[in-house]
Design a protein around this nucleic acid. Structure first.
Lengths: 199, 199
DNA sequence: GCTGTTCCGGAACAGTTATTACAGATGTAT
DNA sequence: ATACATCTGTAATAACTGTTCCGGAACAGC
């Protein structure tokens, strides 16, 4: 890592593709359930190449999660950018369900599959998942506060509680999907949620 | 396992206490995050004693989960036994929150901490968790169907969707608690949920 | 007292874990 | 062409994985 990168033998593989493969494997098996041997196979690389390009397992996991957030989890960010509160909430549900039922990746949030219960060694990974879940919630809260200021959300409502409520339902949907619920079933669940929310 | 158990050296430890220790460890660290070495230490037993008394790691996990369901997770069963639908729903939230905030054990459902994402070796454990989550949901559905027959729940409501909706919120609360939410925060969340449910 | 059965402690097992060392290959810059 | 920097493949590392084996201890029934 000390060179200027303009000399020496250049890297012989697609770094993005390799990280994508690692991300998908971590997503499916979690941090602890994914071994370096699994990763070498899925990424098509030797251990040394992985360590040189991405660091150790923890750093690789970090990078994989970052990639997940930037490429896969933008549906939530996009939903919060909708102009009205109703559109925001509807988009949150629609996008989440579309995300959870997209073929080619596990039907769960990586933040739940990554690590919930885990060994002491994997605690950093678990804390990272927790941190991201809280960040997502904070982004939602920010949007709901804005809606409250604009009058779309009653001033009588405790935004913190309301945020946690919404966040809970969405996390619950992820568990539902992991349980094997179909897209139609998830939509039915969301419809009831939306009705109860007044939409 | 061939003897009649009436002869030979008797067991020298409290089987229930040992299983309780194993259950707590699995609850906190999940199936994969808990090693046999961890278990021998927590249970205060040698490997041979564990294998003789409980079978291998998979069987021990099964027994631990069974103990969890019988001793720790009865709050959900009890809630469903309430006489009216409103009392059932209120008890589901109250009991769940009390459960999640009880000191002495992790602030999550074992069915979520046990295994969500995991290696292929741990798939049986993950499937067991999924199976139990679905069983819990089936019990809720049964109670809601009864409420619909008695007229407490509108016939226009799709009970399957309604069950999944309730189940989702409760699972979401468990994630909330794992995120570090306090009892007061969980109660605030539940209050909004109850209001939206019409209570 | 024996005899038979079971349990206990600890070492040993083969396989896997993440990680690194090393030799050779492959490129760039001069 | 030569020197240098980096990457790649393989093999080794030490620690840990779940599981089993074995000598001896501890009990029940006779």
């Amino acid at each position: 890592m000390k060179g200027n990168g303009k000399t020496g033998r250049p890297i012989g593989f697609d770094k993005d593709a390799a990280l994508e493969a690692a991300m998908l494997l971590f997503w499916e098996r979690g941090f602890e359930g994914t071994s370096m041997a699994d990763l070498t196979q899925a990424m098509g690389l030797n251990p040394s190449s992985i360590y040189a390009a991405f660091g150790d397992k923890n750093e690789l996991f970090h990078l994989a999660v970052r990639r997940y957030m930037e490429i896969r989890a933008q549906y939530a960010v996009k939903a919060l950018e909708e102009p009205t509160l109703e559109k925001v909430v509807r988009a949150l549900f629609d996008n989440t369900i579309a995300f959870l039922t997209t073929p080619g990746h596990p039907p769960t949030c990586m933040t739940l599959a990554g690590a919930v219960g885990c060994s002491v060694d994997a605690k950093p990974a678990r804390d990272l998942m927790k941190e991201i879940r809280k960040q997502n919630e904070a982004a939602m809260r920010k949007r709901l506060l804005k809606a409250q200021r604009s009058g779309e959300l009653s001033k009588d409502i405790n935004v913190n509680d309301y945020t946690r409520y919404l966040s809970s339902i969405l996390a619950g949907l992820s568990i539902q999907a992991a349980n094997g619920s179909t897209k139609a079933e998830l939509k039915g669940t969301a419809q009831i949620a939306l009705r109860h929310l007044g939409y």
